[in-house]
Design a protein around this nucleic acid. Structure first.
Length: 295
DNA sequence: AGGGGATCCTGTTTGC
DNA sequence: TGCAAACAGGATCCCC
């Protein structure tokens, strides 16, 4: 599942392989990944044809390719999206959804948007070269030098919402997904259901530091594919096998204290945590039906 | 307004 | 063996 490190690997690969290329044709094999583009599949294809890719940028889990005229091709990988740079005669992947035929870059090939589950997508953003308006609401990510830690801590501490939900709120901080959220919380020794307003500023900043660290570590390992011909991301960076302490480790011993890692449902997915290192917050007293209200 | 749950997708895994 | 349910989850939408 592409979170920030995986998307950054893709961005770097695109920068290397497709910047300078001109789009000479667009083949739309499935309309769904273009649902965010008001032009529709045909309009998207027509509008993109003839443009030249001028760069490759990223914010959080979004990436965009600025075009030479100030517009941008905006992309999100969703959960299963891939951007593959392929030779012109490549056999289409099973889940190939959109193919950009390229010409003119140093090693011009075709760019394939492959996405099994199609939570991801592409769109053409008018005037979006610097920052697409469609993602203006997405916060900076922890690896962005302009990320404002003080503001982040202040906002988190103003909300009653659980800290994991806040970590996943792309309006507060971007790039963190379910996996790295659990890992950062494990490293910080904080339970994801702790209300933001009950954390100290120091705790929030430490947690943010752990999130940054776990993503930097993953990036360092995923970075080995920078030189690969194909820009690829499928969540199998190798990082997952070696370095995860919490995510996906239900019933396995905690690497820090040996207590069995627990899995609980969370937002239609799962949260993993160590019940000893990350104690479940005590519920505040709730009025029960039989309790007389205070006068 | 903030909080929290539902929804979209498809392929794989698990369970009866 | 076969079918159905559960599961994976980023972003958005909707209701309270």
């Amino acid at each position: 599942m592409p979170e920030l490190p995986e998307v950054e690997v893709v961005r770097a690969g695109l920068e290397r392989h497709v910047v300078g290329a001109r789009v000479v044709g667009v083949d739309v094999l499935h309309p769904r990944p273009l649902r965010r583009d008001a032009r529709g599949p045909e309009g998207f294809a027509a509008a993109l044809t003839g443009r030249t890719i001028a760069g490759a940028r990223r914010r959080g889990k979004y990436l965009w390719l600025p075009l030479d005229d100030g517009d941008a091709l905006l992309a999100h990988l969703g959960m299963s999206g891939q951007m593959l740079v392929q030779p012109g005669d490549a056999v289409p992947e099973k889940h190939l959804r959109v193919r950009l035929r390229l010409e003119g870059a140093a090693d011009a090939r075709n760019l394939h948007f492959v996405d099994q589950r199609m939570f991801g997508g592409l769109s053409l953003s008018e005037g979006g070269a610097a920052l697409p308006a469609e993602i203006a609401h997405i916060a900076r990510d922890p690896l962005d030098p302009d990320f404002d830690e003080d503001e982040f801590a202040a906002r988190v501490r103003r909300r009653a919402s659980g800290i994991k939900r806040q970590l996943l709120d792309q309006n507060l901080v971007s790039g963190v997904g379910n996996i790295y959220a659990d890992e950062a919380l494990w490293r910080a020794g904080i339970h994801g259901e702790r209300p933001g307003e009950r954390l100290t500023r120091t705790q929030v900043l430490a947690l943010l530091g752990h999130a940054r660290e776990v993503m930097t570590d993953a990036l360092a390992q995923g970075g080995t594919s920078f030189d690969a011909l194909y820009v690829n991301v499928n969540g199998e960076s190798g990082y997952f096998d070696r370095s995860l302490h919490a995510y996906g480790r239900a019933d396995e011993p905690c690497d820090r204290c040996g207590t069995a890692i627990r899995r609980v449902p969370f937002m239609n997915r799962s949260s993993y945590f160590c019940p000893a290192c990350q104690p479940v917050p005590r519920r505040r007293r709730v009025m029960t039906a039989g309790t007389a209200p205070l006068d």
